[in-house]
Amino acid sequence: MTRFAFLFAGLFVCSAAQAAPQDLLQSYAVQAKQENPQFQAFSAARGEQLYHAKRTHSSGKMLSCASCHTDNPKSAGRHEKTGKAIQPLAPIANRDRFADTAKVEKWFKRNCQDVLERACSVQEKGDFVTYLLSLK
């Protein structure tokens, strides 16, 4: 009985973690349509571009998402300032990614400001998540 309960709980946790990024993308799609009636779909290719795009920050530093998350989102990263290890960003390598909406929003707010010095649009966030989910 105990073993069955564990198995059941395990199944539930797995399916919840896998469904979450899709739910997040769906809610981004709803928001994107509200922001832009011409919205069609999210694009992994645009997300990939955004991930690698290098930009000169007002501090003079050349920054991109890859500065901390590395050129391969399946690899562990390193905080560009403190050196602290960062778990991989791609859900294939780290199933906790994009499973908690509040956490996702917290980091988009911070990191879009850190790299782009502005907020990201819903289109950008959706493209970005679509790209990371497309990695196998």
């Binding site: 501090s59 300032k81 509040a102 917290k106 707010k109 911070r110 990191n111 400001q113 850190d114």
Partner: peptide
């Protein structure tokens, strides 16, 4: 926060 956005709710 030391030049980076560390904002919290």
């Amino acid at each position: 926060h030391f030049g980076q956005d560390a904002s919290l709710d």
